[in-house]
């Protein structure tokens, strides 16, 4: 009990209240936040097109096409992201030489493997979001479009998808929030995002708890308001939708 209490009172290295690494190491956390946000936003954006393709494949008439998409989704949803990351990072990008280019604060050669891995993972989840969004569009919409003589592809593109995408925007935004948290696994392979900043600062200063408490607070301050904001937008969209 006493040793537990000391976690909060003792100013030593293993303490919840020891933030002495600040302000010296603040830049680590700032660039960590930027990298985390870049990773999550870019990976979900990159996931959108493959996810749309996977969703359409799952809704295809051909059983074989359905199965290819189903298999992809099953593999990525039924294995840990950490493992996928390892395989893609050490396997795929071992063979590919990336250019040593920096865009803004993003160093492409270290950024790309992670963003690709996260995007491939996210595509499986976003595909299911899209599929649900497409199925949620009233079947009469497709019938009306086809009855006018529009081929299936055109009907999908002009009539179904615009309505489906509006339906799935909140879920897509939630996927970004999920990615903000999930992208912390990238720290294991040296991606300098938020979690990596905490590990690095803890390792350098020997202050073992404080940096992690700080990043927990930062993750929370990003994810919680974002989730609440998305819920509010969703409620407003539903009000506008009443027919």
């Amino acid at each position: 009990m006493e040793s537990f209490l000391r976690l909060f009172t003792d100013p030593g290295p293993a303490s919840f209240v020891n933030f002495k690494f600040l302000p010296k190491y603040t830049p680590y956390f700032v660039s960590g936040i930027m990298n985390t946000l870049a990773l999550s936003v870019v990976s979900v954006i990159l996931a959108v097109l493959p996810a749309l393709l996977l969703a359409l494949m799952r809704l295809s008439r051909s059983k074989a096409v359905q199965r290819v998409s189903g298999a992809y989704i099953a593999v990525f949803r039924s294995t840990p992201l950490m493992v996928q990351l390892a395989i893609i990072y050490f396997g795929l990008f071992n063979a590919i030489k990336l250019p040593n280019v920096t865009i803004g604060f993003i160093r492409l050669n270290s950024f790309i493997p992670f963003v690709v891995a996260l995007a491939l993972n996210s595509a499986a989840y976003v595909a299911e979001i899209f599929r649900a969004g497409i199925l949620a569009v009233d079947s009469g919409q497709m019938e009306a479009a086809r009855s006018l003589g529009l081929p299936k592809g055109k009907a999908m593109k002009l009539v179904i998808l615009p309505q489906a995408i509006k339906n799935v925007l909140p879920a897509l935004a939630n996927e970004v929030v999920t990615m903000v948290k999930e992208s912390s696994v990238c720290s294991a392979y040296g991606m300098a995002e938020l979690m990596w900043a905490a590990r690095n600062v803890a390792g350098t200063t020997g202050i073992s708890i404080g940096p992690f408490v700080l990043v927990a607070a930062i993750y929370f301050c990003i994810a919680f308001p974002a989730t609440k904001g998305i819920e509010a937008i969703e409620r407003r969209m539903r009000r506008g939708d009443q027919r």
Partner: peptide, 10 residues
């Protein structure tokens, strides 16, 4: 074709 539920594109 005209449907019971109109099926206009909203």
């Amino acid at each position: 074709m005209v449907f019971q539920h109109f099926n206009l594109f909203p």
